[in-house]
């Protein structure tokens, strides 16, 4: 089906009749200033957020797992051009299904400037699983706390300031359906992309001392060979978990490519 190793430049958006686009590790960043990834659980309103940001009218239906083609759009802000990629909705990034692989590969190897994680405010705990995993891969992230109107209807209140403090990244409440909060979201995205805000994202420290020790040792080994790798710790975790795709990525030279690009 989709061949992720071909080096394709993404076509321009004014081709409304061709939505088939391939996500791969050779994303063309030439024609934009910043590359933004949209991640999140299925059915959180990701595609609505995408529409709000880019104005491109992708159909967003009330059917879980709706995005069947990879949508790409652009918007301008503060004199910069932003390219937004709508990733498939995933519950986690432990990379078992094809959707998870695509999402994770893009965040890891595609190296977006900002990853926006769209979260359903009515079931925060479940959504945080993905947020925590993404924050281990990248520190350049914004959490979009969406569906605030539904949370309100269910009498759920979320202290988003405190959440931002804990997570170490901006948390922006939105109601994407009615375009509320999208301006604040755009500002946050821009601030992270332009380096005006540096985040220190939440990190998990495993309870087991043995595991902790192993992570640290492996992290050091990785940093010896790939000194500029920002998420060496996460890679160490994945290797300890026996993640086959990460092992293959080493053998395929994907990590070498990443270092060279930096």
């Amino acid at each position: 089906m989709t061949d992720t190793t071909r080096d394709l430049t993404l076509p321009k958006i004014d081709q409304i009749f061709e939505h088939d686009q391939v996500i791969n590790m050779g994303i063309d960043k030439e024609d934009c200033d910043y590359l933004i990834a949209l991640a999140g659980n299925p059915n959180t309103g990701k595609s609505t957020v995408f529409n709000d940001l880019t104005g491109l009218h992708q159909h967003t239906g009330n059917w879980p797992g709706k995005t069947v083609t990879r949508a790409v759009g652009t918007f301008d802000f503060s004199g910069n051009k932003f390219k937004v990629v709508d990733l498939p909705g995933t519950y986690s990034l432990l990379a078992i299904t094809e959707d998870e692989v695509i999402a994770r590969d893009f965040i890891l190897f595609g190296q977006p400037d900002v990853t926006v994680i769209v979260v359903d405010a009515t079931c925060l705990e479940r959504n945080l699983n993905l947020v925590i995993q993404i924050l281990q891969i990248t520190s350049r992230a914004v959490v979009d706390l969406n569906l605030m109107d539904e949370a309100h209807r269910h009498n759920i209140e979320i202290d988003h300031h405190q959440l931002a403090e804990i997570l170490g990244v901006p948390v922006i409440p939105t109601v994407a359906r009615y375009n509320k909060g999208i301006d604040d979201l755009t500002v946050a995205i821009h601030n992270i992309a332009a380096g005006k805000i540096i985040c220190t994202p939440y990190q998990i420290n495993p309870e087991s001392a043995v595991l902790n020790h192993a992570i640290e040792k492996l992290e050091k080994e990785i940093q010896m060979v790939y000194p500029n790798l920002p998420n060496a710790r996460w890679v160490a975790l994945r290797l300890l978990d026996g993640d086959q795709r990460i092992k293959d990525a080493f053998r395929d030279g994907a990590f070498d490519q990443m270092i060279n690009r930096n």
């Binding site: 705990e125 925590i132 759920i156 202290d159 405190q162 804990i166």
Partner: peptide, 12 residues
């Protein structure tokens, strides 16, 4: 971790 965080920030 997810449960802990949610506990701290979510109120019904």
């Amino acid at each position: 971790n997810a449960a802990q965080i949610a506990d701290q920030v979510v109120t019904r």
